[in-house]
Nucleic acid binder design. Sequence first.
DNA 1: TTTATAAATGTAATCGTTTACACTGGTTTC
DNA 2: GAAACCAGTGTAAACGATTACATTTATAAA
Lengths: 332, 332
Amino acid sequence: MVRIVDVAKKANVSTATVSRVITNSGNVKKETIEKVMEAIQKLNYQPNILARQLRRLETKTILVIVPDITNTFFSNILRGIESVANKNGYQVLLADAHNNVERESNFLDILYQKKADGMILLTARIDQNVIGEISKEYPVVLACEYFEGSQIPTVSIDNISSARKATDHLIGLGHKRIGFISGPLGGVLGRDRLKGFQQAMAQQNLAVPPFLVQEGDFSYESGYNLMLKILTLDLPPTAVFAANDEMAIGAIKAIKSKGLRVPEDLSVIGFDDIKIASIFEPALTTIAQPTFEIGLKAMELLIKLINKDSITKNQYMLEDKLVIRDSSKELS
Amino acid sequence: MVRIVDVAKKANVSTATVSRVITNSGNVKKETIEKVMEAIQKLNYQPNILARQLRRLETKTILVIVPDITNTFFSNILRGIESVANKNGYQVLLADAHNNVERESNFLDILYQKKADGMILLTARIDQNVIGEISKEYPVVLACEYFEGSQIPTVSIDNISSARKATDHLIGLGHKRIGFISGPLGGVLGRDRLKGFQQAMAQQNLAVPPFLVQEGDFSYESGYNLMLKILTLDLPPTAVFAANDEMAIGAIKAIKSKGLRVPEDLSVIGFDDIKIASIFEPALTTIAQPTFEIGLKAMELLIKLINKDSITKNQYMLEDKLVIRDSSKELS
DNA sequence: TTTATAAATGTAATCGTTTACACTGGTTTC
DNA sequence: GAAACCAGTGTAAACGATTACATTTATAAA
């Protein structure tokens, strides 16, 4: 292994000067720079980042905890994060929680052990107080999810109003008996979307019988199974709102498995607008989130936190969009 | 920040002893261990991993370069890798190349800078010689892809024989005019699957007119566009083999867009068996790769390399499986 | 009791950088 | 011509752990 001293010797300067050259921190004569660069070339020297990190007490790495990497919804957020990260010399350490709270918590050690300078959470299943404590000591940004009454910087859409928008779409099509397949009600995200649904229904004085609301876990399988359950009702709904696309697709598959058609017999609307939403048949009506921008903004905020820059506000709400495709249709 | 010296002072021992306790490297009296643990608890001490890494010249981190994180095919391989990694105290640094060779090469710096102890490549677009050189100096394992005539440890299926198997399936159903949508022919993976296709066709003395072979890039879009192109032929094929599922689904969408049906008018077979393959309609006939096992084995090999254990052989071929679903059907 | 051996602990060097501070020699300012 | 300043460089002390080696203490053997 070739070290900075080797370069220094070869170039006949001190290690300090070499260091100044590789970090281009100014105040080095042009010729000296050339000498040093030549030595670096010849020796094929690469600075040892560990040593630098130890000295500077920073890692230039940030941690992103994803609830489930197989859900393509998150991929695009990641790309947004990465794009800002790389532009600023940060590397992204990706942690996949496999939808498992315990795994999620374990990743926090990475932060404690100073292996990362900050963290973006794309999930909020860890205890709010724990995260609250951590965020006092380390830079933390929440994306998509959020905690009620928390001061942690957050980037998301307005889930309540989006869910209202989706529900209004169905109501506008003449549906009155609408089912809802929710996300886990343990999280705000799941609760908010349910809240939006309920608000929209209430506004039009439409009833929401409890058995028309089923709690899922955002997985394809839960969408499938819960829809089957809903279909066993004497008076099944004419439309269903699933709190994410994966469950919506599961629901449609369940509907089809019973010989019914979407949207002719039942309208279905999803949430997220993941890639298959437009490929699947019928193409899914859904709420599109500005995923890339969410990632972008989250990383920008995190960098500000790391640099201890002041942050003007800590709740960023981005615009979503209703995308009407083939899975929803006027009640006939 | 609380350091090891603080703990040492509090527990009235030397830093060496504290270090021995936290790395439990033996030879410490029970009572002393207790004293130290108590101090650690009280001070809420967390060892600084950077310092440890610098001293030991290892990072306990491995780098995985994925060609495209949005392709769910890789997610399961990652889980295999992670499962072995975590069991052995390694963290996984995920690098997403966005299907971009340049990005891919840039990640190599992570290795040069000693930010990772080794690397698993799930893609092989980087120049073979470059990788060859790197693998002499750093632990490197290739998964899924491989280089011809290279000594780098590799875990994959036998793509040639798998492609032959897929083609034989179509031939067995009576198809004689079969189209092939390949992956990028710049990579062995793309070439091998084409080779298997050609071999199977040749074995049955079936012609492969050049225009029935189209080069895609493994993306949904390329599958869609190339299928449209194939359908403009005067005598279109009765079956199509796409070199991965994403392209197969693109192809099916294209076929449908022309008012044709799968499998009634054309049979389609894919490759990989990603999750949507079974959800999509028609459910896709495809070759299932043992993704989790591939990841597992790759990480096991990498750990051996890192530990400089001897490796008995360096080409691991795992078993794939033909999964017959609804997108392929006897020629009527 | 003495000696040999093993167990437990401490001292200080080390990993490879960065950077505060000191130094040199030259230029500018009054 | 002294004082003040600056550009360019070097010296050596950090950063926070691990660990080779030295030392002390306890235990066993003679």
